[in-house]
């Protein structure tokens, strides 16, 4: 495996510069346009970049989850139920709710701690379906079954449509950047190093003293929290509603596609990937139907996988370098 994306992430100097760049770019855009549709698309990108970041963090520990929608959906349900039934302000439930998928993540991590690759994929894939089943059937009295639940809005009522869109945009941006900084520093830390060794070779990681079990479970728990945060944020801002449809296969596949497109196991990759794929998707939808667009997107990703196995982020870096600026990630 050639250049080491993962270890480069570890050696990257504090990602503050990149974070500031993202904030500056987003603010600039806001100064230029208030076009509602664009703001909504970008808010979506911010929220799902958090979701992809979560998937990518778990992948950094060598665990390819194919059931991430479990966490996304549980975070949304937990936060919305806390806000509706216990009267918690959404600004609080947004952060408390994801503790549920974090716990579930720890449980799944524990249960699957000896499984890898295809085994892990099959089992996590199945978890989404069982969660949907539990939410609809066994907890139907709480979740209103297939009809789902209205979600209280995060922003105060009485804002103008534009004000709400700008508010959601800024909240999404803030949480995405915060998540980015948290994940980037985690990847550079001792814990990140442990994740990377487990990704590369569990056996050697173990005999080198890395507590493989603990770190694998930890990665799933952290991934559960972040994915849940994205789910809750999505529910309280964009969709304002949640239904069991959230536990679908597609929502488990997207973060994988975003991360692969941007660059696996780097903290920048998921953000770039979500942005590029999503914008492309919106452009496609203007010309094609949903089915055709989806197929085209997947084929486009296949091309990326085939010709740019490290994703698009290294290309961006090379572009930046070519323009003459010092690449941001090299020391």
């Amino acid at each position: 495996m050639a250049p080491t994306a993962a270890s480069r992430a570890r050696r990257t100097p504090p990602s503050l510069g990149i974070a500031l760049g993202m904030v500056a770019g987003a603010a600039l855009l806001l100064a230029v346009t208030r076009e509602l549709f664009l703001l909504q698309v970008l808010t979506f990108v911010f929220i799902f970049a958090i979701y992809a970041q979560s998937w990518n963090l778990v992948a950094h520990s060598g665990q390819f989850s194919l059931g991430h929608a479990t966490f996304l959906g549980l975070g949304g349900y937990a936060s919305i139920l806390l806000a509706r039934n216990l009267g918690l302000p959404p600004a609080v439930s947004l952060f408390v709710g994801p503790l549920l998928p974090a716990l579930v993540g720890l449980g799944i991590g524990r249960l699957c701690v000896r499984l890898r690759e295809w085994y892990l994929g099959m089992v996590t894939f199945g978890f989404t379906a069982i969660t949907q089943l539990l939410v609809v059937e066994q907890f139907g009295w709480l979740t209103n079954r297939w009809d789902g639940l209205e979600a209280p809005r995060l922003l105060p009522a009485g804002l103008s449509v534009e004000g709400a869109a700008v508010g959601n945009y800024l909240i999404g941006l803030g949480l995405m950047v915060a998540t980015y900084l948290a994940v980037a520093s985690l990847m550079r830390s001792r814990t990140g190093l442990a994740f990377a060794t487990i990704h590369d070779n569990e056996l050697v990681a173990g005999v080198s003293g890395v507590d493989v079990r603990r770190y694998r479970i930890l990665a799933m728990g952290a991934g559960g929290y972040l994915a849940g945060l994205a789910g809750a944020l999505n529910g309280h801002t964009l969709t304002r509603h949640i239904s069991p449809g959230v536990f679908g296969i597609e929502d488990s596949i997207w973060p994988l596609l975003y991360s692969i497109a941007g660059g696996l196991r780097t903290p920048e990759g998921p953000i770039l990937g979500t942005l590029v794929v999503r914008l492309f998707w919106e452009l496609m939808l203007r010309r094609l139907g949903g089915f055709e667009s989806l197929i085209t997107i997947v084929l486009m990703l296949a091309v990326i996988v085939r010709f740019f196995p490290q994703g698009l982020y290294p290309l961006v870096l090379r572009g930046v370098a070519a323009v003459g600026a010092r690449p941001a990630v090299r020391r």
Binding site: M1, A59, F64, L66, E117, W118, G121, I249, E250, I253, L256, L257, I260, L264, G290, F291, E292, L294, I295, V298, L299, L301, A302, V305, P309
Partner: peptide, 19 residues
């Protein structure tokens, strides 16, 4: 890399379902 095979395997779901 194994992730490429996993990608293809999972991407086929979307392609076939939507087709």
């Amino acid at each position: 890399a194994k992730i490429n095979e996993i990608f293809l395997s999972i991407a086929l779901i979307l392609i076939l379902q939507n087709a």
